[in-house]
Computed example of a mutant assay.
Amino acid sequence: MFEARTRLTRVILQVVVTVLVLPFLFPLAAMLQGSLAGEGWGNYAKVLAVPGFGLFFRNSAIMALATIVIVYIVALLAAYGFSKLHIRGREIYFWLLLACLTLPEVVLLTPLFVTATNLGLYNTYWAVVLPLAALQIPFAVLLARNFLNGIPNELFEAARVDGANAFRAFWYIVIPLSRPIAAAIVIFTLLASWNDYLLPLVFLQDPDVQAITLIPQFFVGEFSNDQTKVLASAVITALPEVLAYLLLQRYFERGLAAGAIK
């Protein structure tokens, strides 16, 4: 692994990293500045006063949590099978799964709509949760499999000698050692599910189940386009993601690095 050993090298690296980060900070600064234009903090008060704001926030939290649980369970189980179990044709199945990464969400919209309508899932959380989970699982499996490849096979062989079956090995070895990659999966899945706009817009027409990403629609209409409120709603919507990253930052960075290079 590359390591900066001298003060000059560390200074150069710090300058380079700072320059690379600046282009990402400018949009955030512009968003914060724009959200305080006009009425200042009153823009946030107007957003929080939107009828059903708390309900929309709760709906998004429920859908994000359900999506994270599904992706976490399925991705770890699948990665365990692809990495440590002797399954005939597992590489073929793995590459077929990765092929799903090439499918954009908008292409699947029509078949998903027909399926949700026929199964009676329209205007329910599951109409959004299940497609979101399915779209996130391939990438999560890719990360988790690379991470599990770094766990020595001797641990599983020792567990097998002690009489542990495949499930017990998964429970007592994979889950405790996979916390870093689990944090990465949680963060990526949270970003995808919390920020998703298209699926809630199409599948959730009932106001009782709509998501928080639809809040900006209250300030954009035929005769109004209050961008200050839109930016304020964007800042409020981003807060849970920022908080989750700060809480899981240590595990996230370790898991992402391990899942990418092992």
Rank of each mutant, 00 (worst) to 15 (best):
F219T: 11
M1R: 12
M63K: 05
G150V: 07
L239N: 00
R58K: 14
V186E: 03
A158I: 10
V17R: 04
Q205P: 07
A4E: 13
G150N: 10
L243C: 13
F167E: 02
N153P: 04
E154P: 04
A234L: 13
L48I: 09
L198D: 07
T115V: 13
N195L: 14
L142D: 01
T124I: 09
V161Y: 05
W171C: 06
A182Y: 00
N59L: 01
F156W: 00
A140R: 03
T67N: 05
A30D: 13
L108F: 00
A169E: 14
Q33S: 10
G81Y: 03
R10A: 15
A4N: 12
A64C: 13
I236S: 11
I68T: 07
C100I: 01
A169H: 02
T124M: 05
V141L: 04
Y251I: 00
A30G: 04
R90Q: 10
A159V: 09
P131K: 07
V202A: 05
Y172W: 12
P152C: 02
A238M: 14
L96C: 06
D208S: 13
A99H: 08
L130V: 13
A30S: 13
R179Q: 13
Y197M: 13
Y44A: 01
T67G: 04
L177P: 11
P138M: 00
V11M: 12
R145Q: 09
P104A: 01
L247P: 05
A184R: 06
P51D: 15
G54A: 05
D162A: 14
P51G: 05
R7K: 14
A232T: 09
Q249D: 02
E241F: 02
T102Q: 09
A183D: 06
Q249G: 05
L201H: 13
F219Q: 03
E241N: 08
R90D: 12
A49M: 10
V107G: 01
Q205M: 11
E154M: 00
V71N: 01
L177Q: 15
S83P: 00
D196L: 07
A127R: 10
Y197L: 15
G52N: 11
L132M: 15
L247D: 04
L155C: 00
V186A: 01
A192N: 13
L243D: 00
T228N: 15
T213N: 06
V71Q: 09
D226R: 14
F2E: 10
Y197N: 11
T67Q: 13
Q136K: 06
Y245N: 09
L190G: 08
I236G: 06
A211T: 03
A192E: 11
Y44N: 03
I173L: 15
V186S: 01
T102W: 06
F188P: 06
T9G: 11
S178R: 05
G52H: 07
G120F: 08
L32E: 08
D196W: 01
E157Y: 06
A29E: 02
L201N: 10
E253W: 11
I261D: 10
V174R: 03
E39L: 08
V129D: 10
Y125H: 15
A182V: 11
L22H: 03
I173V: 15
V174H: 02
E154A: 08
T102H: 01
F188R: 05
N59Y: 01
A30T: 08
W171P: 00
Y245V: 10
S233Y: 01
V17H: 08
L142Y: 13
Q217L: 15
N118G: 07
V128Y: 09
G221S: 07
